[in-house]
Nucleic acid binder design. Structure first.
Lengths: 192, 192
DNA sequence: GTTTATCGTCCTACTAGTAGGTAGACAACA
DNA sequence: TGTTGTCTACCTACTAGTAGGACGATAAAC
């Protein structure tokens, strides 16, 4: 038992991940779930609303996921490791080969405002989470940070997004780990 | 005296940089340079050919630019610094706020093959250039590399692309330097 | 307990506008 | 005379979005 609007978002997400905001149409979704275009408009009157809802859901899932990482792993090292492993798995099995918001961020200049602001919020949230993990790790002398936690978090986030892009450009899922793992290792005190 | 086909590419480039492959149309170009859509088809019969030509030109400019950096600066340190400064300036004055190929790489799964292969070639070329600079710098004991030059090059390239994305997501050009400069500094022997 | 009204969902059929692309005429020019 | 570039005029396919109605479920009114 899964609602139609959920099904719509389920179908839309991989399409957005593959081609961005302009990379899919109501017709694509219509074909995929066997429902008329007009019915999609019933659930999501405009495309901007559809994508906004999609990003809202994605952000909610992300928030839950990050929170559960913090509950599941006590050590900041393990938390960060688990975060990286999560993306490695997603890219590896192609279940989510790219972050929805990273994809949309590339198209920022032409996104509807309501979508752009949500994408930006995701970036803020993720940066905040990474900052808190890095800060905690630094306080526990697990990480050695060259910059302040917030700057290190931005660097790490950029690395992750850049690594996703390279994995895609080279059509090589392994590229993600090849880039991010050493970046992560660099933070560890033990390695120096 | 600038040829029409050059003008077409000049107009198409910022449109692609803003919205990707599906983010512009022949009509957009037509409006911008005061020429009919059909005339654009005369120069570039298909959209895939237009974008392929655009990427070819971009790659050529990149090759020239990177070569001139190597001629202009003797030290690998300065070469890398100049490369970073170049992008910092482009993003700062919004003349080229994103790499054409990084933009297209995000849409890789739905690009025409002829475009995708060219984008991939750009990534290979840039990674190769960075590798050679890093290697030279390591041999001269200017850089201290934790990984092999090729891996370090991939990491640096990903950082640059991720930093572009963050600058765009946060609508903050300064974000690029804030991410890339420390990453660059980390390579320098003097800093340790 | 049956009727009545409302709501949510989905439908067919349609709109105006845009997508990439084509055919053929015309003019300048070598 | 043929080539190059531009034009008008058009095409088909597709875009997001709308109008209005059919259907079933649910709930209130009698």
């Amino acid at each position: 038992m899964i609602s139609t609007s959920e099904k719509i978002l389920d179908v839309a997400q991989p399409l957005i991940v593959a081609g961005g905001y302009n990379g899919f149409s109501y017709a694509d979704i219509s074909d995929a779930i066997g429902i008329r275009k007009a019915s999609i408009h019933h659930h999501f009157p405009t495309k901007a609303e559809l994508v906004s809802a999609l990003v809202d859901r994605y952000r909610q899932q992300t928030a839950l996921g990050l929170k559960s990482l913090q509950e599941q792993f006590a050590s900041p090292t393990d938390q960060l490791q688990a975060y990286v492993n999560f993306w490695q798995a997603c890219i590896g099995d192609a279940s989510l080969p790219f972050c929805v918001c990273a994809m949309l961020a590339g198209e920022m200049p032409m996104l509807p405002d309501e979508v752009a602001s949500r994408v930006r919020a995701h970036f803020h949230h993720l940066a905040g989470w990474l900052t808190s993990v890095l800060q905690a790790g630094a306080e526990q002398h697990l990480f050695r940070l060259d910059q302040r936690p917030h700057e290190e978090a931005q660097m790490l986030m950029a690395s992750v997004h850049g690594a996703m892009l390279s994995a895609r450009a080279f059509d090589d899922p392994g590229m993600f780990a090849a880039i991010v793992k050493p970046q992560f290792a660099r933070l560890l005190v033990a390695d120096r």
